[in-house]
Design a protein around this nucleic acid. Sequence first.
DNA 1: ATATTTGTAGACTGATTAGTCAATCATTGT
DNA 2: ACAATGATTGACTAATCAGTCTACAAATAT
Lengths: 186, 186
Amino acid sequence: MDKKEEILNAALKLFVEFGFHATPTSKIAKEAGVANGTLFHYYKTKDELILALYADTKKRLTEYMYSNTSKADSLELVFKSIYTNTIEWAQENKEEFYFIQQFSTSPFYSLISPEEIRKQAEPHLDFLQEGIKAAVLKPLPVDLLYTLINSHIAGINQYLSNGEFSTSKQKQIINESFQLLWDMIT
Amino acid sequence: MDKKEEILNAALKLFVEFGFHATPTSKIAKEAGVANGTLFHYYKTKDELILALYADTKKRLTEYMYSNTSKADSLELVFKSIYTNTIEWAQENKEEFYFIQQFSTSPFYSLISPEEIRKQAEPHLDFLQEGIKAAVLKPLPVDLLYTLINSHIAGINQYLSNGEFSTSKQKQIINESFQLLWDMIT
DNA sequence: ATATTTGTAGACTGATTAGTCAATCATTGT
DNA sequence: ACAATGATTGACTAATCAGTCTACAAATAT
């Protein structure tokens, strides 16, 4: 019933299928079941809609990443939870995850200010810094560590998406690939 | 002088800056210094131009990847050469590498047939299979290995592109990151 | 009750776009 | 010399698109 949300849902679906510019706002409105003008009532421009969709999607991913993690757990356990959560979310929200990647390798990404990006990455970098300080993680530059982990996750996700795996097989792959990553960075 | 090539060059530059659909064919023609109709003389449709640009760029990357590798060398040495070559090419051809990534996470990617994709990956997969057979690489699924390596390279490249490193520092990072990857997969 | 704001609609517009077309120009083979 | 083929041009078109505008409905405030 929330039209603002319906518009985001419709936009996500269509952007993933056709791309940003090949998706007219008129089709987004139609898919969302609202009038053309309504879309522009909530989002002043198409760019604003795209940025809002990215912010919203990224936020949902980040929230899920840190779910079910307790500060009482060991660093490795927390790290593994975050790793597993992320891949789980990506598998259960394939369109959303694909959209984030699509957005990140598009000219729209440059519309986000560097501060915004740093702010987004900060908690993750802090967490990694902690791991280095505790001599659990290798003393590599945190940025490098962060990028390495991110691309590893992207890779595993791509592998899982391309093949057709049972849930248990999928879990096994996640566990084994975590071990590969963990051995690499500790 | 080769107009067909000029068109590809212009398209690459503009696609990277503005995206596929936000780049009108008229601007590509202008940038290439040819008339509107000339573009459509060489490429029947805009899609065909985009696909041709991807094929051409990918081909140039692949050629460079395997340059300066000798079959006489050890598997590790060949592997390291390919790794180093790829990152070097990506650093020296940032627009091209960015374009490949942009294309791969766009709806245009689905216009390429699965056979074409497999054919493209085959030599790399064969090479990895060899490594497994020789008990040098871990006996992981080759597809997984391939994806892992690719995303590792993409990550390192992103790290190098974001920071401002001297040539020697860059070489050091490439060497160290290779060691991380090599330890992970052997 | 009345006024004010907010939400919703959809026709409309000015600008832009991919692709066409008819007409030259250049090159090559005979 | 002379076809014939291919290259090149840029004006043109039919369609499409982002965003506007006016009107009205619903909700909220006074």
